[in-house]
Design a binder for these strands. Structure first.
Lengths: 340, 340
DNA sequence: CATCGTTGATACAACGTTGTAAAGACGGCC
DNA sequence: GGCCGTCTTTACAACGTTGTATCAACGATG
């Protein structure tokens, strides 16, 4: 069994509370006793029981990170950065997976609470705004990506509309005229924003927007991207460029294009979103929107820190983090095509 | 403040313990009272305070997962599976990143303990065997991948030697004669095992083993794979196949091969290890060793469960989980080569 | 000398939960 | 009617920690 304050106290010949005082740096402890206690602490290798301390103090030392799936590279990379940022504030990170279902997202939020974590960083996918206002978890929340329309909740994300507009603008700049979009989604807020940016860019360029060029995707996985691309290629007039709402969709699209004997970008240019590490190594490498993930992680953790510190009363923040367009072979065409 | 058992008890007009009994599914509660309590539970939206429950039960409700980097697809995928398996045992998962340094791995282990987590699943990279015996964390540990030579610690992994031998055997089967290996590492145990399997397969086939065909890699990232491949291609007699010790190295190698105008697999075949999701979509798709990651996660969590439950101090387990050779385009050559 | 403030140490209660034991209610049996 | 066993509920203590109140010793002050 673990060493408790009592064990240390017995060994040092003082009361439990005096040991507690030493551990917590209380000033008024006689030098002699302090020395004895410190010796006993070292000898026993005492570690405070976090559960008990939390119970008494109402603090936990944990924050939760709620994401759809860690196996999605974007979230894996983000999780690593959140863990690093949290560690700097002496927080450990508890990770929950929702697999993108609304029920699981709601369950996760409901199961969180002041007794478990000090705050939570949530990357919702299917969550509705009222799910958040309904069940107040009683701890500071920071939303990533999605913006909860009405709920007064902190929010960190890049400007999805502008980012999408930038990506599609780049396709226009390299001369594409039939530009498709993959990733439309009925409930995902970011999907709507990226679609809006896509449309804005087409409008800017005075291009038509045939409905057939916008393909939905329910899951943003490679498989869906491949299927969507196949659908586009069955059109009477296929597109000459595709804007995918994330890099996984783009990876699938890339694969399908190759299977159909299309040259990328000569026949069809492809742009992604997220800048997964793998996208710099695909064949061809993928032009993509690169959000500053470290900035997202740092900002989110810092918001929780400030809320917990108790200035609680500042208004809900809506923070935009920087992004960049990473131009690679899938649009500029110097790709080292795989020889036959 | 959160709802407690007391609040529910007051509302239902019964004792705290009766509410506790209902919550925990104790059989002997009068139907009438059970109904009243359940109503009160629903009305108040009661959630048990995990800290208090665990304090009482002598468990923390957490297990730790210690991995090098979540942004490495293998660990991202594994983490998701561990979280799922842990959830089935009412455990939340605390994730620590070590970034593969021995110091960080040691620190992580030292900071763990019975006060924080009930057990830990550790995927060591640079850790030496005595680091484990030195600092007994006082909780059940399960090692993944690496085998701690002397320490009596549970261990879950595939048979790395056999897997490597199978992979390289496949290269032999398709007629390759100069087979290189990328990923040699001075301290990583799995590297040694995979190298042993590689050598065994070459010996089986009666092939020579020139030293120049074994290339080290300190980090198993795409970049290292690309560099190693470039090195191989500078040889007077380059290899006609490469066995990479993980899929990331293979992804880098694939990229470099294409950049140098080599056809995969016609000019050079490539095999990876881990079966990252992305490897099914690369161009060409990657032949690789596919460990049963779900089996690894389930087995590891179950071992911890048994140890924690365990009056039964059973001897340290050394469990081998299944794997399969996933044959794809990078060796069998029906790749949809990207047209120029 | 009485009083006061400072320093140092401790006992006790409390956080929310559950295990233990004991007490109460009920029916069936002799 | 008395006794026993089964069902049902409750009071109490305990998990390890810390905040509050209390107490004791001491020197300084009036």
């Amino acid at each position: 069994m673990a060493v408790t304050l009592k064990d240390v106290a017995t060994l040092a010949g003082v009361s439990v509370k005096t040991v507690s005082n030493v551990v917590n740096g209380y000033a008024f402890v006689k030098a002699e006793n302090r020395r004895r206690v410190e010796e006993a602490l070292a000898a026993t290798g005492y570690r405070p029981n976090m559960g008990a301390r939390n119970l008494r103090r109402g603090r936990t030392g944990f924050i939760a990170l709620v994401v759809p799936e860690l196996s999605i590279p974007y979230f894996g990379e983000l999780a690593g950065l959140v863990i690093a940022a949290a560690q700097r504030q002496d927080w450990s990170v508890l990770i929950e997976e929702t697999r993108g279902t609304r029920d699981r997202e709601r369950d996760s939020l409901a199961s969180l609470g002041p007794h478990l974590v000090d705050g939570a960083i949530v990357s919702p996918e299917a969550l509705a705004a009222d799910d958040l206002t309904q069940h107040d978890p009683g701890i500071p929340l920071v939303l990533l990506g999605e913006h909860a329309m009405n709920a007064p909740i902190d929010h960190v994300a890049i400007d999805n509309v502008l980012a999408a507009r930038t990506a599609v603008g780049h396709l226009v700049d390299i001369g594409r005229r039939r530009i498709a979009a993959i990733g439309q989604h009925p409930r995902r807020g970011t999907a709507a924003q990226r679609l809006a940016g896509y449309r804005a860019a087409l409008t800017d360029a005075g291009l038509q927007q045939p409905a057939e060029l916008v393909v939905p995707a329910l899951n943003y996985h490679r498989k869906e991207g491949a299927a969507a691309m196949a659908q586009l290629m069955r059109l009477r007039r296929p597109p000459d460029a595709v804007f995918c709402f994330n890099d996984l969709l783009a990876a699938g699209a890339l694969r399908t294009a190759a299977e159909h004997g299309l040259r990328v970008p000569a026949d069809i240019a492809i742009v992604g979103f997220d800048n997964n590490e793998e996208s710099a190594y695909s064949l061809p490498s993928l032009t993509t929107i690169a959000p500053d993930k470290a900035a997202i992680a740092d900002t989110a953790v810092d918001l929780i820190r400030r809320r917990v510190a108790g200035d609680a009363a500042f208004p809900p923040q809506d923070i935009q983090t920087p992004f960049a367009l990473e131009i690679r072979e899938s649009t500029i065409g110097s790709a080292p095509a795989i020889p036959r």
